[in-house]
């Protein structure tokens, strides 16, 4: 565990807490893509299959449970909570995310570390996480202005994977055996997808203006 990875995990945790705060405090999920949340729930479930078989550390196990639990709670809230579900932008959140699931699964069948059930689902979850933000970014562009908490949610989510890239660079130089190419390349693609969001987020912060993404 190095500082970059720990910071990345904390940014990831903060992003989920910001989202939970927004939904709980405003009792609204406008501007949030349910499809992205569903993809993240699938990412965590398929990545943490080893939750009960391999024990790495208390931190590792607790964080896995928190990620699975919080994302499941967000998906539940957006679909079933009587008040929150009314504010879901159903007609804007129309990204066909099943294609992402299918494409990532086919890719995982070809590109994986070992051809085992667990490894294929692990590679699948890595590829899916890279593209899981797409429905959310598309929704933000369609809904035009972005409210602060949603903007911070996407910002912290991007920062988390960016710090993981620093973590992989650090591990590449510090450990003789580096076999995280799947995570590394997928993580680069994932962070690149946030690049334009970061650009507009920075502009809005610099001009102290409302975050507005060009349609």
């Amino acid at each position: 565990m190095n500082i970059f990875r720990f910071a990345g995990d904390m940014f990831h945790l903060i992003s989920i807490l910001v989202l939970l705060l927004k939904i709980y405090a405003t009792k609204s999920c406008s501007g949030i893509s349910l499809k992205t949340q569903e993809l993240y729930a699938l990412v965590f479930v398929t990545r943490y299959l080893d939750l009960f078989t391999d024990f790495i550390s208390v931190y590792n196990t607790v964080m896995k449970l928190v990620f699975i639990g919080s994302t499941a709670a967000i998906v539940w809230c957006m679909q079933w909570h009587p008040v929150v579900k009314r504010s879901y932008d159903r007609e804007l959140d129309t990204f066909r995310h099943y294609f992402l699931v299918g494409a990532c699964f086919v890719l995982a069948l070809f590109l994986h570390e070992n051809f085992t059930f667990q490894e294929i689902f692990w590679a699948f979850s890595i590829y899916l996480e890279a593209v899981a933000i797409l429905p959310q970014l598309v929704l933000l562009q369609r809904s035009g202005n972005v409210d602060n908490l949603t903007g911070q949610y996407v910002f912290f989510l991007g920062a988390y994977r960016a710090f993981y890239i620093l973590n992989w660079i650090y591990r590449y130089f510090m450990e003789q055996r580096f076999s995280r190419w799947i995570s590394c390349i997928s993580g680069l693609v994932q962070t690149a997808l946030y690049a334009d969001f970061f650009y507009y987020y920075f502009l809005s912060w610099k001009n102290n203006a409302k975050l507005h993404l060009p349609a």
């Binding site: 990875r5 995990d9 990831h12 990545r47 080893d50 391999d54 790495i56 590792n60 964080m63 896995k64 990620f67 570390e113 070992n114 692990w122 993981y164 973590n167 076999s179 995280r180 995570s183």
Partner: peptide, 10 residues
């Protein structure tokens, strides 16, 4: 034996 890469990252 092929060292099974433990995924110690989240």
């Amino acid at each position: 034996s092929s060292v099974v890469t433990k995924h110690d990252e989240l």
